[in-house]
Amino acid sequence: MTEAAGTGVDLSGLRELNSLTVMRALRDNSPATVTELSQRTGLSRPAADVIAQSLVAGGWATVIEPGSSSTVGRPARRYRFRSTAGHVIGLDIGVHKVLLLLTDLSGEVVHSERRTVSADAEPEQRLAALDDVIRESLAATGLSASEIWAVTAGVSGPVDATGRTRLFTPIPGWADVDLAAHLARTFGCPVVVENDCKLAALAERWKGAASDASDVVYLLAGMRIGAGLIIDGVLRRGHGGAAGEIGALKNVRWLAAPSHLENCPGVPESVSADDAAAWVFDAARRGDKNAKTAVTKYVKDLAVGAAALVLTLDPQVVIYGGGFSRSADIVLEPLHRELARLCLRVPELRASTLGADSVALGAVRLALNELDNRLFNSTLSSPSAPRGNAVS
């Protein structure tokens, strides 16, 4: 970004553009001196200084006064993006839980709230749990709904343009739920609904195991298997929001893969269906023959769909995430062998580092992206929550 002068130049628009440029630089690399802001933006030092001071006056930045420890020259004043100017919410509404993460504008988690939900809960019960975690989180942080700048919710199943999961969802009765409209009754800010696998992929590239990769296949491995795709650094939804739903093909065998763990011989009757897989993985570590056979069959079925995605997209990395990622120690090596047998080139396989928070963290990232799209394509006023209808 450079300064311009001369007849015909929209100086007001240019100042606005320069202010947005400095704020983006400050947000991405904070704190920073005026000299550093000048170097990052291409603006002259005096111009960067004036804009930095105006951002402080407008509530977008704070000043870090120089300390007294420096003995050479005059220490430089530094500016920090005021990440507490606003907050966003990321939600993970799954089969067994509702998880909320409330963060500041830098993505720093300020508060988390979780509710366990029965797998066969009716939509009304699940929405009531959602309302509870929202109410508790706002109360715990002392924030009002009007102080939330963006909300993103992750759900199981492909999400269409209306924010609904009409094609398929494992959550009972959820295909008829208008989640965006429900959340809009509480929040006046932008609301986005997205598929959980896609959000988990976004989170892994933001703060997880794929932070150094631009081409990523994320495998959400649990009692349901799904995939999220990032190509050239961009999350891919597909035309109808169903990108990555390769498990819908029965020949891919993802639908049947978890049954090898559920139906493993030797699982004690006292172990619930939800906990059977964890028992089998633990038994396989101990050398149990039936458990090792079940894990082998599960990995072979998982590899079929994973190989199809690898051959199609040629990713840099494949992330093994979801609830089963805690068993990556006994899954990744045989999965690599299967992919080597099926693929022309095997990408690096990595275990998720975000665990159960991956979907909610991805929701936070998407909420922050939504804010960026609005903030950096508009005029820069004092910090306030964007207003808007629910979107998907």
Rank of each mutant, 00 (worst) to 15 (best):
40 R>D: 00
149 W>Y: 07
260 H>P: 03
123 P>V: 09
78 R>C: 00
190 P>R: 08
194 E>Y: 08
155 V>M: 00
66 P>T: 06
295 V>F: 10
184 A>I: 05
226 G>P: 01
204 E>R: 12
351 A>D: 07
274 D>M: 15
18 N>L: 10
286 R>P: 07
348 E>R: 15
312 T>Q: 11
26 L>P: 01
133 V>R: 02
241 G>W: 00
59 G>A: 12
97 K>S: 10
58 G>T: 12
354 L>G: 03
243 A>I: 00
14 L>W: 02
199 L>V: 04
147 E>A: 15
152 T>Q: 06
285 R>W: 05
107 G>L: 10
43 L>R: 03
170 P>D: 03
312 T>R: 11
369 N>E: 08
300 K>L: 14
350 R>N: 07
306 A>M: 15
327 S>Q: 13
47 A>P: 04
45 R>S: 08
85 A>Q: 04
170 P>I: 15
180 A>I: 13
2 T>E: 04
317 V>P: 03
308 A>K: 10
121 A>Y: 09
184 A>C: 10
364 V>N: 06
162 T>E: 01
14 L>D: 04
250 K>Y: 11
304 V>N: 08
68 S>C: 05
201 A>M: 01
67 G>P: 03
173 G>F: 12
345 R>Q: 14
149 W>G: 06
208 G>E: 02
157 G>A: 00
327 S>P: 05
5 A>M: 12
69 S>G: 09
110 V>L: 11
347 P>V: 13
195 N>I: 04
272 S>G: 11
310 V>M: 09
43 L>Q: 07
385 A>K: 04
373 N>M: 13
319 I>P: 01
53 Q>C: 03
234 V>L: 14
51 I>S: 15
103 T>V: 04
378 S>M: 09
387 R>I: 10
380 L>E: 00
268 P>N: 11
171 I>T: 10
111 H>F: 04
326 R>E: 00
252 V>M: 09
328 A>S: 14
388 G>P: 01
331 V>P: 02
123 P>D: 01
305 G>W: 06
362 G>C: 12
326 R>S: 11
149 W>M: 05
91 L>E: 08
392 S>H: 11
259 S>C: 12
312 T>S: 15
207 K>L: 13
178 D>L: 13
322 G>M: 14
103 T>S: 07
20 L>E: 08
226 G>D: 02
118 S>Q: 06
